[in-house]
Computed example of a mutant assay.
Amino acid sequence: MFAGRSWEDWIRQYSQSHQNRWNQLTHSFGIPMIVLSLLLALLSPFVTGLWPLAAGLFLLGWALQFIGHAIEGKPPEFLSDWRFLLVGTRWWLAKVTGRLD
């Protein structure tokens, strides 16, 4: 699935298109919002009222992603390779745990 590349290689490439601090900031909020929205969407058939919250978080999270890329002046990596949708979450985790260079 990852074409013989390590997570570190994928994250390094992802980081290259996320150099601007404002882009990093929008991603630092947008990525967890998107992940949380997906989890809430999975729970929404069982819990009344979650669907609007999940949809709102999803839309706002993606809006932040695209705002960040507009500021950066670079397209999102996932437009060239869908696997970067997964790498973004790992990048965020590395960033918040201090494991990102």
Results as ranks from 00 to 15, higher is better:
3 A>C: 10
3 A>R: 15
4 G>M: 05
4 G>Y: 12
4 G>L: 03
9 D>R: 09
12 R>S: 11
12 R>Y: 00
14 Y>K: 05
14 Y>N: 02
15 S>G: 08
15 S>N: 15
17 S>L: 07
19 Q>T: 15
20 N>M: 08
21 R>V: 10
22 W>F: 15
22 W>M: 13
22 W>S: 10
24 Q>V: 06
26 T>L: 10
28 S>F: 14
28 S>W: 12
29 F>N: 03
31 I>P: 07
34 I>G: 07
34 I>L: 09
35 V>E: 04
35 V>D: 00
37 S>N: 09
39 L>R: 01
39 L>M: 13
41 A>H: 03
41 A>K: 05
41 A>Y: 08
43 L>P: 02
45 P>V: 07
46 F>M: 09
46 F>D: 05
46 F>G: 09
46 F>C: 06
46 F>W: 14
47 V>Q: 09
49 G>N: 11
49 G>R: 12
49 G>E: 13
49 G>S: 12
51 W>H: 12
51 W>F: 14
53 L>T: 13
54 A>I: 11
55 A>R: 12
59 L>P: 01
59 L>K: 04
60 L>P: 03
61 G>M: 00
61 G>I: 00
61 G>D: 04
62 W>D: 02
63 A>E: 02
64 L>Q: 06
66 F>W: 12
69 H>Q: 09
69 H>M: 03
69 H>V: 05
69 H>E: 06
70 A>C: 12
70 A>S: 13
70 A>R: 15
74 K>V: 14
74 K>Y: 06
76 P>F: 03
76 P>Q: 02
76 P>K: 04
77 E>N: 14
77 E>C: 14
80 S>F: 02
81 D>G: 00
82 W>I: 12
82 W>D: 06
83 R>L: 00
83 R>N: 01
83 R>A: 07
83 R>K: 13
84 F>A: 00
85 L>K: 10
86 L>M: 14
90 R>V: 13
91 W>R: 04
92 W>R: 07
92 W>P: 02
92 W>H: 13
94 A>Q: 13
99 R>M: 08
101 D>W: 12
